[in-house]
Simulated assay, not measured.
Amino acid sequence: MDPGRERKRPGRPPGTSDTRERILDSARELFAANGIDKTSIRAVAARAGVDPALVHHYYGTKQQLFAAAIHIPIDPMQVIGPLRETPVEELGRKLPSLLLPLWDNELRTGFIATLRSMLAGTDVGLFRSFLQEVIAVEIGSRVDNPPGSGRVRVQFVASQLLGVVMARYILELDPFKSIPVEQIAETIAPNLQRYLTGELPGFG
């Protein structure tokens, strides 16, 4: 049997854990150097020395590959999809209502590990890419009024959410760490909405 044909048989891709890691390492290098938009599955495959189909088999879409590269244990579309369907005037409430329960439950361990890695100085560039190229593109373009303010608005929102994360999961401030996520979401939603759609000093 032709080994080449066997390697390409659907559902039985070749590769070991070393192959998976080589793909992931190649993805991290390219994402960090070029960002998400300018990195293709084909480029990652070429750097790793594998067929693009193998990258898709192990990691799915480019967004899923990026999530794996920065150790986010979910498909970013689980967050982006609902945000796309949310009216602009409701984003301030939707964001914490969507993110906090994820962080507080099944994703907590992986999320905290990623955050600690960021604080230690690793993966910062990749996480910044995710924030600026995924979240900023998805939300920033919708709240870019006046023009040029969208990216800054998203960064103000990010600073608020990261503050919650630090207080709740890293510093574990009491009683903040025990407050129900719904209560936190309701409390910070008006401020997030103001960042997104309210008057922004220095613009307009």
Results as ranks from 00 to 15, higher is better:
176 F>K: 06
94 K>Q: 12
73 P>E: 10
137 V>R: 07
113 A>I: 11
194 R>A: 13
71 H>F: 08
106 E>T: 10
156 F>L: 15
61 T>I: 04
37 D>P: 04
135 I>R: 12
42 R>L: 10
36 I>C: 02
150 G>Y: 00
128 R>H: 02
160 Q>K: 11
190 P>K: 08
148 G>Y: 03
198 G>M: 02
28 R>K: 11
196 L>N: 06
102 L>R: 15
7 R>T: 10
193 Q>S: 07
172 E>R: 14
4 G>N: 13
51 D>H: 10
37 D>V: 11
104 D>L: 01
107 L>S: 10
99 L>K: 13
36 I>G: 02
93 R>T: 12
113 A>Y: 08
28 R>C: 05
68 A>V: 02
6 E>D: 11
64 Q>M: 13
91 L>N: 14
138 E>Q: 04
134 V>H: 03
47 R>S: 09
42 R>E: 14
151 R>P: 00
25 D>I: 04
64 Q>H: 06
164 V>Q: 01
59 Y>E: 00
154 V>T: 10
87 P>R: 05
35 G>L: 02
120 A>H: 12
37 D>E: 09
179 I>Y: 08
146 P>I: 00
1 M>S: 14
17 S>K: 15
19 T>K: 08
187 T>G: 05
97 S>W: 08
124 V>T: 09
61 T>Q: 03
177 K>S: 03
13 P>K: 13
173 L>K: 01
83 L>R: 06
108 R>M: 14
95 L>C: 13
95 L>A: 10
29 E>L: 12
194 R>L: 15
55 V>L: 01
203 F>Y: 06
160 Q>Y: 11
33 A>G: 12
131 L>Y: 06
126 L>P: 01
73 P>G: 04
118 M>F: 14
69 A>G: 05
159 S>K: 06
76 P>T: 05
53 A>Y: 08
57 H>N: 14
182 E>L: 09
42 R>P: 05
17 S>A: 14
96 P>N: 10
27 A>R: 00
15 G>F: 00
15 G>Q: 07
123 D>R: 03
115 L>V: 15
23 I>V: 11
203 F>N: 04
41 I>E: 03
21 E>H: 05
68 A>G: 05
76 P>D: 05
140 G>A: 06
187 T>A: 15
48 A>F: 00
56 H>K: 13
148 G>E: 05
129 S>N: 06
183 Q>N: 10
49 G>K: 14
107 L>A: 11
